[in-house]
Design a protein around this nucleic acid. Sequence first.
DNA 1: AATTTTTATGCAACCGTATGCAGTCAACTC
DNA 2: GAGTTGACTGCATACGGTTGCATAAAAATT
Lengths: 332, 332
Amino acid sequence: MRDVARLAGVSQSTVSRVLSRSTSPIQISQDTVQKVLDAVDKLGYRPNLTARSLRGQKTNMIAIMIADISNPMYHSIVRTVQAIARERDYDVLIANTDHVYENELHFCEAIIRRPVDGVLMVPNHLSNDEIEQLIHITDIPVVVLAWPSYYPRVDAVYGDDLKATYDAVRWLVESKGHRRVGFIGVSRTLPPGERRRTGFDRAMTDAGLAVPPDYIQEGDFSIDSGQRAMRALLQLAQPPTAVFVCNDLMAIGAIDAAKDLNCRVPEDVAVIGFDNIPEATIIRPRLTTIAQYPVEMGQQMAHAVFDRIEGLSNGTRQVFEIPCRLIEREST
Amino acid sequence: MRDVARLAGVSQSTVSRVLSRSTSPIQISQDTVQKVLDAVDKLGYRPNLTARSLRGQKTNMIAIMIADISNPMYHSIVRTVQAIARERDYDVLIANTDHVYENELHFCEAIIRRPVDGVLMVPNHLSNDEIEQLIHITDIPVVVLAWPSYYPRVDAVYGDDLKATYDAVRWLVESKGHRRVGFIGVSRTLPPGERRRTGFDRAMTDAGLAVPPDYIQEGDFSIDSGQRAMRALLQLAQPPTAVFVCNDLMAIGAIDAAKDLNCRVPEDVAVIGFDNIPEATIIRPRLTTIAQYPVEMGQQMAHAVFDRIEGLSNGTRQVFEIPCRLIEREST
DNA sequence: AATTTTTATGCAACCGTATGCAGTCAACTC
DNA sequence: GAGTTGACTGCATACGGTTGCATAAAAATT
């Protein structure tokens, strides 16, 4: 910048003003602007955003923490967020936690040490206190993709998966006539695990159906774990005739395991997944699943955080529900 | 930091020295260290890495540019790189180009404006000149995941996909007895597209087999495009009996399309993919494919860049070949 | 006891940019 | 023609750290 100033025959501050003219109300003569721009061009100068961040206390970056880089759900969210960020000349820092608590903490620590202007996150273990503390220390707007009751004081975007699970299970029972329904979930310590399990339990109770303990299996979101869980279910003396699986990847594994055991889907056992990832229409039978709408989620999250960054919203927290929808295909 | 200094009763420089003791050879009395650490603890102070970067001309960040966030190949690479970076207390900036040239340029621009200590990239369009220029401007070590001849002056990690393609096609012909072999590729303007096509062409020529123009289809890496391409092949008057597909996602689409057209795989048409993504063992028939080894790729890339960052290597460029391997499953 | 060396600390400059404040100059006002 | 105004521009400082250099105190040497 000093070099540009020298070449243009003006002071360094003037160069700065020319280059950030949009954000500065001060006027500069047309003549000077031209001289500076010429010099910038000639030297191929680009401002150093790190320095700009330091001085301006504004980084033009936001961070997004996702739970699983392998889950296509998050790809759409990330892509959407990036597109919206790009429009505003923001860069996006992506962090992947693989659902591990330590990684979530590491992310918070990283944000504290290298501040950004806004944070989007899909927490799985972080307590409300930990998020509050992050906000308190950094004073950065945070938007979570999570059931709002877990984080009662930050903007939240969430899919109503409890209700969606409830409705889907009742549909299995009432429209499809299943009475023995199994469940492949994930740890109840994870918010979605807890909610979907609750939805399942309530639906079964309300339908007046008992669920043997064996019918409840637990996986870890992966295809492999879905296979294992399904194998366990099908090897029971009296296996379920339908299985609700907490995400599509595990459902894909479950269908695979069923085939291996010469068990027809959906004739012998119906399978329903959750997420509606692209692969759901690829496998055979095509997977019945509960669709989430990641693009909408990404949009809401991004807009919520940018509204706060730009001061458009600063009052009470906002909560956006993105409804889920059952998509019936061939696996039920 | 000033507050810490005040509380500890020392100067701000001393605090800095205590906190970056590892990198500074200067000695500090045990007593002072303790006072400072106590103050840090009491105030919950964390150094601002942005400021540190500015002064130190070292960001403790590396950036990685991948071509497709939906491709599981890159998930492994990213995970591996992140693990290695974490060991060294580096953060990783992830950028996704979706194979689009503008995004690659944008990435370079972002790196210029917000420098990092090292860059890993999977370029698809960037010219050698453009990469040279990036290095020239920023003076940052760059490691590419790409056939080295495209970027003759930077460290490169690459899978020998040309040879792997050649071998696989000859195997289809000689061991499996196919004589009509189709090809579903991607644009030859993309390095892997070009190489795999070359490998295919050479293998067919060397086997003395002609390839009708109709047998060459082009997709865009996606499942959808694989479906479309396969449909086109199977609707020919004389369809191929085997199809070499340039990546697994398209191969999955291709198998799907075949099933839709009541065409059995592998009896009526054999399919071979490339990448060996996890889904390859999930679909039925299980996909024969050429495995790449993304973990090894990530390791080599990360080590290459850190070796340069730490000054362990600074001479001539390094090139690492990660061989591919044919994995025969059920689709051939 | 005087001198040299070592150890520990502080002062001040610097990284690259943004901005409050003061100053210059031309154009206006009266 | 003196005073006022407004449009530009530069000086100096700040952002939050790191580090070269000087110096004071302590230890070692002569």
